[in-house]
Design a protein around this nucleic acid. Structure first.
Length: 411
DNA sequence: TCTGGGGTCCTAGGACCC
DNA sequence: TCTGGGGTCCTAGGACCC
């Protein structure tokens, strides 16, 4: 590929995003170790760089983090605030091009191939973005520039925080030569695959690129082909346009109980609460689904997953709850061991119009459901709720189910 | 007061139909 | 009369991402 056709892709990765936003909103936290976490039995979602100096990492339990840094500031995450800030940040990117793909709440790809000449090159665009983020939000980011998304993503990881790494097509080979398999996490090669690759003598990106395709597909199926491309730094996936929405494939909620439990009544009331949340979100999206999946994690971290596809679409909490209980009664109860986490999700989704409420009781209850949704939207989640949800409430969960993740929210 | 929560994609194997 | 095989849908499970 010559220089004329070489793409210029940026990956902008906000540094310790949630923690930085908290520091931005509360000056008292600036320069101090901060962790952002959810409530209940939860883990560190983001640690500020000051906290990382003590060895605190994402995924650690809060007590573990406290042990490393007794004075660490603990903040309960506020997803709305982070989404709001993200949307404002995107406006900076959109000043350059519409080819802005939201990869997660704190990461965006940009394809600046067509516009870089107006701004003195891709690197200059990156510098302008960094300056504006710092000036307008007080936030820093790491930016990787590469001829495709995979290389841009790997490049962004090279320098953190506040880094800028440019890998031109010409430099890709040298770059990959020095890249160990472990450092390829985040682009489809996780811990398990990395382990398997090392077992067959593949230790660097270049080893992967040079590996025999038949051998790779023998081990990993279709993915073997994908891995080989990654190893060669090849990636043809385009950067999506900001305004092209990717369709939602599934909607789900799960929750870890405050204590492991085998109390069926308590579990059922959680199921009801989760079903209502899933139903409400589906209706907000104007969608319904026909595949129900329930997921149970037991106290020992073993799990069981049951999936069932129905002939009709549904999106009411009551319907999801009823079907979940049917599955539980048939397959899971009586319980053999205590339950740690319960999850409900709906897939095989379709957009739905008013006429398409297929269940008779849903049609009848449609007005009621709409009214409840409206009230809950205005006055807060579960202002109006089924009576049996009281049990879950007494067990101490409702209103504490903070959804906190960097991945789930997409434009 | 060990190990969250929300997603996506892929695969193997079974059921069922023609 | 003797039992193939392709296609599609579904379920369960695994791996990955942030």
């Amino acid at each position: 590929m010559d220089n004329k056709t070489e793409k210029k892709i940026l990956l902008i990765d906000m540094n310790s995003y949630f923690a930085s936003v908290e520091q931005m909103c509360n000056p008292a936290l600036k320069g101090k170790p901060v962790i952002v976490c959810g409530r209940g039995r939860t883990v560190v979602v983001t640690a500020s760089y000051e906290a990382r100096e003590y060895g605190i990492k994402t995924g650690m339990t809060v007590p573990e983090a406290r042990k490393l840094c007794p004075n660490v500031n603990i903040v309960y995450g506020n997803l709305d605030k982070y989404i709001d800030t993200s949307l404002k940040i995107h406006k900076i990117f959109l000043d350059f091009t519409d080819k802005v793909e939201v990869f997660s709440i704190d990461e965006c790809f940009m394809d600046v191939t067509d516009v870089e000449n107006y701004y003195g090159g891709a690197e200059n665009i990156a510098l302008i973005i960094k300056r504006r983020l710092k000036h307008e939000f007080g936030l820093t980011c790491s930016i990787g520039i590469g001829p495709n998304k995979v290389i841009a993503k790997l490049a962004a990881k090279m320098k953190k925080p506040d880094g800028l790494t440019v890998i031109t097509q010409e430099k890709v080979k040298d770059f990959l030569e020095e890249l160990s398999i472990e450092k390829m996490q985040g682009i489809g090669i996780g811990k398990h695959i990395a382990e398997k690759l090392k077992n067959i003598g593949i230790n660097t990106a270049v080893d992967l690129g040079n590996a025999d395709l038949m051998m790779l597909t023998g081990f990993f199926g279709k993915l073997g082909w994908v891995y080989k491309n990654i190893g060669q730094g090849i990636d043809h996936t385009p950067v999506r346009n900001y305004y092209d929405k990717s369709p939602i494939k599934s909607v789900g909620h799960s929750h870890t109980f405050p204590q492991d439990t085998d109390n069926i009544e308590v579990i059922k009331s959680y199921v009801l609460m989760l079903s209502e949340k899933v139903g409400e979100r589906l209706r907000n999206y104007k969608m319904a689904g026909k595949t129900l999946c329930i997921f149970i994690r037991f106290y020992d971290f073993s799990y069981i997953m049951k999936r069932k596809t129905y002939s009709c679409y549904f999106n009411s909490g009551t319907e999801i709850f009823k079907k979940s209980i049917e599955i539980l009664d048939k397959n899971i109860f009586p319980l053999s061991k205590k339950v740690r986490l319960f999850g409900v999700s709906i897939s095989s989704l379709t957009r739905i119009t008013t006429q398409e409420y297929l269940f008779e009781d849903q049609r009848k209850n449609k007005k009621l459901i709409e009214t409840i949704d409206e009230i809950n939207k205005r006055y807060g989640e579960f202002t109006i709720k089924p009576l049996s949800m009281k049990i879950a409430e007494n067990f101490g969960i409702i209103k504490k189910c903070g959804v906190l993740t960097t991945r789930t929210w997409k434009k």
